[in-house]
Measured scan of single mutants.
Amino acid sequence: VTTYKLVINGKTLKGETTTKAVDAETAEKAFKQYANDNGVDGVWTYDDATKTFTVTEMV
């Protein structure tokens, strides 16, 4: 189990959260659900070296 981080660069919501998951795919599903629940829709990137997902909403 690995800890993954999500950085949110939203128009109205900004911040970070973490989740523990067995792999990046599982973490991504959890983060996308979290973003969807919070009304964040944007471009996703993932950095495997730092285990960090970033979602950026276009203005």
Rank of each mutant, 00 (worst) to 15 (best):
K29Q: 08
G10I: 14
A30H: 13
E28R: 13
A35I: 07
E28L: 15
D37Q: 12
T26E: 10
L13W: 13
Q33T: 11
T56Q: 07
Y46C: 01
A24Y: 13
E28Y: 15
L13E: 06
V43E: 10
G39R: 07
T18S: 12
L13F: 15
D41T: 15
V1K: 08
D48A: 12
T52H: 02
F53R: 00
T17E: 05
T18R: 05
W44N: 00
N36V: 12
V1C: 14
I8E: 01
G15Y: 15
T52R: 03
I8C: 04
D23R: 04
Y34W: 10
T26N: 08
E25N: 10
T17P: 03
K11C: 15
L13T: 08
E16C: 15
Y46L: 02
L6R: 00
A30I: 15
V59G: 15
G10F: 14
A24M: 14
T17N: 07
E16Q: 13
T45W: 06
Y4R: 00
Y4A: 00
K5V: 10
I8H: 03
W44R: 00
F53T: 00
T19K: 05
Q33E: 08
T12M: 09
T26V: 06
K20D: 15
N9K: 11
F31N: 00
K5N: 06
Y4M: 01
A30D: 06
T2M: 15
T12H: 15
K29N: 06
K20R: 08
D47G: 02
K5Q: 05
F53P: 00
N38L: 12
T26I: 08
G15E: 10
A21V: 04
T50M: 06
F31K: 00
Y34N: 02
K32V: 06
K14S: 09
E28D: 04
K20E: 15
Y46K: 01
Y46M: 02
Y46P: 00
K51T: 03
D48Y: 07
Q33V: 11
T12W: 11
E57L: 07
Y46R: 02
V43I: 11
T50A: 08
D41A: 13
A30Y: 14
K20N: 15
G15F: 14
V7W: 05
T54H: 06
Y4E: 00
T19P: 01
D47M: 04
V7T: 05
D41C: 13
Q33L: 12
V55H: 01
G10E: 03
T45I: 09
G39M: 07
T3M: 11
I8T: 03
E25S: 13
K51M: 08
T56N: 11
T19D: 03
T45E: 10
K5G: 03
F31W: 02
T52D: 01
E16G: 08
K5F: 13
T18M: 12
